[in-house]
Simulated assay, not measured.
Amino acid sequence: MKFHIMTLFPQIIEAYMSESIMKKAEEKGNIEYKTWNIRDYSESKHKKVDDYPYGGGAGMVMTPQPIVSCYNAVVDDLDESLKQDKKPKVIYLTPKGKVFNNDMAIALAKEESLILLCGHYEGVDQRVIDLIVDEEISIGDYVLTGGELPALILIDSISRHVKGVLGHEESLDEESFTNGLLEYPHYTRPEVFMEKEVPKVLLSGHHKNIESWRKLESIKLTMKLRPDLFDYEALSKEDKKLLKKHNVIDK
């Protein structure tokens, strides 16, 4: 998987990608990334990338020429196989887009390459979207000063589903949202901390009981913290019996 990030602030991307799991994933060759400074492709004398909006209004709008020229440079840099019918999907990070979720991360992880466009100011000229953008994605119902943080969130989330990035890939099966539920609580040493003890079942070594406890806690957490995600009918017969046994739900 290779990420091409078109941005006005490549250093933001590079700072994050040079640390922790992302750094290790790149060093192992599981992922690649390249930043493209949109300002470098401006044909303006002073490398201007924004202008006042037609029709008036507050703020500035990113002009189309530097973005499209930057995009063309990205395409020219691609492997020949990707220049034909397999050009990377272009994603524009914007509050107007479809809200990102785990299912989208899994789907995008199957792509060979992605181009992420980071907007700024009031956004980009609509003609950029019409000409090169395949999908508009938001990370939530709020507004940020730029698209770099959303781009990094996509890169991180998508990369976790790329083979070899995580040391223990089986952990993906138990993470929040993977099975429609939030993840169960975790505990580590010490066994007692400020008079709060680790649940006895986790110390028992009884794997079946531990598995049941974790599933029960996962369901209870989802019901409490994200009732919008909880779907009783989607639970297995065993899960429903577990809830009834522990008087969590009476059905």
Score class of each variant (00 low, 15 high):
I153F: 02
C118P: 11
I137V: 15
V248Y: 03
E122H: 10
L182D: 00
A107N: 13
T35V: 15
E14W: 09
T63F: 00
E27Y: 07
M1S: 11
T188E: 13
C70N: 07
K240R: 11
A73L: 07
L203F: 01
A105S: 13
L8Y: 00
L154F: 11
D77K: 10
V74Y: 01
D173L: 14
D125C: 14
L117M: 15
K241H: 10
K83W: 09
D130C: 15
V162T: 09
R214V: 08
T222D: 05
K200Y: 00
D239W: 00
K24P: 03
K89I: 11
D51N: 04
P10C: 07
L108I: 12
S138R: 03
Y33G: 01
P53L: 03
L203P: 07
L93P: 03
W36M: 09
K24F: 03
C118M: 13
T35P: 04
I139S: 08
Y121D: 08
I129R: 06
I5T: 13
E174V: 11
D40M: 02
A58K: 11
I12S: 06
H168S: 13
M60N: 13
D85C: 04
D77T: 13
P64T: 14
V68C: 09
I67A: 10
E211L: 10
K47L: 12
D250M: 09
E135D: 12
T178H: 15
L8E: 05
E26F: 01
I153R: 06
K89V: 09
D130N: 15
G205M: 10
K196Y: 04
Y92G: 05
V201Y: 00
M223P: 07
V90I: 07
S20E: 14
I12H: 02
S113H: 14
T178R: 10
S44C: 06
G164Q: 06
Y52V: 01
S81C: 05
I91V: 14
V248K: 13
M194R: 15
I91N: 00
V248P: 01
K83D: 13
V201G: 04
V124A: 13
H206Y: 10
V248T: 04
F230P: 04
L203W: 02
D134P: 10
W36L: 11
K24E: 06
L117T: 06
N37W: 01
V75H: 03
K240M: 07
D134E: 08
P199K: 08
V143C: 04
I38W: 00
L172T: 11
A109W: 12
I132W: 05
K110Q: 14
P10M: 04
I249F: 09
K89P: 04
L78F: 09
P227I: 02
L181T: 05
M62P: 02
V124S: 11
V128H: 05
C70H: 02
